[in-house]
Nucleic acid binder design. Structure first.
Lengths: 109, 109
DNA sequence: TTTACATCTCAGTGTAAAATGATACACTAT
DNA sequence: ATAGTGTATCATTTTACACTGAGATGTAAA
């Protein structure tokens, strides 16, 4: 596999624009400190909304908003269980997270 | 290696907040379609500013602004060469890009 | 029931970042 | 020199998005 030589003089003014929408939407999700912190916290197992809010020093409804976006992206799942089903525990979809990482890799790798 | 069971009743209200600043700053760079497109284009070798602008349908100074941010992050390098050194060609720092991908992986993996 | 708690939804607001416009700089050609 | 390209910088406008506040929903205890 030959490495392309440094460009000399011919301008390529019709290069195709790459499609990076999948990568950018994924990156936008991770670009927020609260969402990134949530995903990082969930690596260690399910956590409920109030625990996340306490850890991050944010309000529950704010956390809930961010969780909704992660849910819509399919990166996390919600479920109620335990003695008090008022609480909602969130857990990561590890395969979806790996696919998301791969989308970012399409740009950086 | 035992898998932790789903949480039952004890609330953990003092969980530590993870440090995700490196991952979020990296993700913020990739969250913009122009910057992501630039990084993707540069996978195929050096490209100059006007070529990028033409491919993405954006103005040169806008591209230049985004390139400056990628430069500050160390993901790309600028160099002049060829017959007309007015043009500035940009190339990726592949190792820096892999490190950046790894930072994102710290959250998603 | 009623009250309290945990979470969700959503419209409104404030702020940070992207695009623009104007200008300056670097290099080439005449 | 002078004019013309290509790129960079920066102030300003514009736009997108995170946070807030208020209210709704679902569950548990009194």
């Amino acid at each position: 596999m030959l490495r392309e030589l440094p460009v000399l003089q011919d301008l390529r003014m019709t290069l195709p624009a790459p499609d990076v929408t999948a990568a950018t939407t994924t990156a936008a999700l991770l670009a927020d400190p609260i969402r990134a912190s949530i995903l990082r916290m969930l690596r260690d197992g399910p956590v409920c909304v109030c625990e996340i809010a306490a850890a991050l020093g944010a309000r529950e409804n704010n956390i809930s908003n961010h969780l909704a976006r992660l849910r819509d992206a399919g990166l996390v799942r919600a479920s109620r269980f335990g003695v008090d089903t008022r609480r909602v525990y969130y857990e990561r979809d590890d395969e979806a997270c790996l696919r998301a990482l791969d989308l970012v890799g399409d740009v950086l790798r």
